[in-house]
Nucleic acid binder design. Structure first.
Lengths: 182, 182
DNA sequence: CAAGGAGTTCAAGAAAAAATGAACACGTGT
DNA sequence: ACACGTGTTCATTTTTTCTTGAACTCCTTG
């Protein structure tokens, strides 16, 4: 077996590997594919914008995975476009505002689910108008209130995450009172 | 092929099926096994406490699945014990306070993950003390601040979810109708 | 307008996660 | 002490999800 041309192009540094591992487990915690975590981790660790090729090369994953991962990450605003003069490839750079990413995730992934749920629920309520025991109505009301609460919660979360968006200097976190929000 | 004894024991009603379907998709949205959603849905729809047998029979899932699902749901306080005189089997009943379930989920599933992440991060920081470029430290600080924010956020979420459910003193009534909860 | 670069799609294969069910452990009642 | 009812465990099987890579589309450029 012989090595031809560039042997092991673009190895990851230890730190890159560690940061990537961090986001891989974060991704899995959110029920997202491992590769999405890898990709975000790579961008997060990178000082400069990267293109699809770089991702494929450094992470040694397929073009398909890289393409889908990048698309997803862009869809939730975890990656932003970066234009590089004289390069036809699309480059991207990691968003590092937790609030923007959380907002993107919520509005792209969670809200639609909730909406579906709410609709399905209405359908159930309609069906059970005539035939049902009191308990069914009670339960339907309960879920409805849960969905409403969730919808009210999102802006609060967003607001909270923006309160501390630090320019510099991680100020020791003041206890923030929920009353201050809303 | 002949039917012996009870033919199709304990069929689910339409409404039960619908409610269960709702929780199945909720479970999947949270990255939990479908069966957990089925089980919670069944309890949620039930007026009376149920035991493992009932779950196996009505949902037609294995004893193993039912056992693990019930255990998990109890671990996050989505199911509460209910004692039935003269019956050796453990019965359970669905918790229907969203706040209690959310708290359980956060403290059992999310907090530990975060803690791991924080530790791993410290390890990275230690390793990179000597060798690293400024950008690495900056990135580590960023993630640290994210973890801190998350920790601060949980109590706020909990507090928010409790604002509307307790019968006691609705200090701030938001436009939500709730005849539910406890 | 042909050739080649960049990115997407999607069927098929690989990997991971969940469900099953038989064996087991633990009580309880006789 | 034994038999039986109840629930747990975990190796195996099944199902689901993720990844791959070749084929394709769409640009861009010479």
């Amino acid at each position: 077996m012989t090595f031809v041309g560039k042997t092991n192009t673009n190895q990851l540094t230890d730190i890159e590997r560690e940061l990537i591992a961090f986001f891989v487990s974060a991704a899995q915690a959110f029920g997202l594919p491992k590769s999405y975590g890898e990709i975000y981790g790579l961008f997060f660790a990178s000082e400069t914008p990267l293109a699809l090729d770089h991702v494929v090369e450094k992470l040694q994953i397929s073009k398909g995975s890289a393409s889908q991962g990048i698309r997803f990450l862009k869809s939730i605003n975890a990656l932003n476009p970066a234009y590089i003069a004289g390069d036809r490839r699309d480059h991207h750079i990691a968003e590092n505002s937790l609030r923007l990413i959380a907002d993107g995730f919520i509005s792209q992934r969670i809200r639609p689910e909730l909406k579906d749920g709410a609709e399905r629920l209405k359908e159930i309520a309609r069906q059970s108008k005539n035939t049902s025991s009191p308990i069914v109505h009670e339960r339907i009301d309960t879920i409805t209130s849960w969905i409403n609460k969730a919808e009210l919660l999102f802006p609060i979360v967003s607001k909270f995450l923006s309160t501390q968006e630090e320019r510099v200097s991680p100020k020791r976190s003041l206890p923030i009172h929920h009353k201050d929000i809303i």
